[in-house]
Amino acid sequence: MAELMQDRVEKLKDLDVFVYHGKIYIPNTYTAGAVGSRFLIEIRDNKKIMGTRCSTCDVVYVPARSVCKHCFSQLDKWVEVSDKGTLLTYTVAGQSNGVQPVDPPIIYGIVQLDGASTGMVHMLSEVDFEKLAIGMRVRAVFAEKRVGSILDIKYFAPL
């Protein structure tokens, strides 16, 4: 079967094939929801990072979510977690891409804040690349002008 199909391509070698270029543009509008918004408001107004706690499973979700993934409980218990935490893993992007919020090189990391059970995906900065390591202790650096976005945490920096 493979030979047969390859023959067909050989025959097409000198044939002109038309190729058309295009682009699709799809705008979107997402809500953070009431729970997500409260999480963002605490950061914006008080520089506090809050999680939601499932007392059945003893799990604290950061960013806050409304449902426990283990027991499906509706979560309504808010707890403040530390602005300091541990780097669980990271990668460095060296190439720019339209969706990135800052210029490369960008260090993406997953940080588990003290008091949280979950990792949180964000960026790192002020880092000496040589010292970058899993397990590194970091703290949240808040943006000066905060608008109610996950980027109100500007980045995480080494402790």
Partner: peptide
């Protein structure tokens, strides 16, 4: 990179290569 929610994943999408680099490192 369009498969993340703009609320939590805003700009923190690395595509497949960055993701698997993290896995490799760990």
């Amino acid at each position: 990179t369009a498969a993340v929610t703009p609320v939590w994943g805003k700009g923190v999408a690395t595509g497949a290569i960055g993701e698997f680099a993290k896995q490799a490192l760990t």
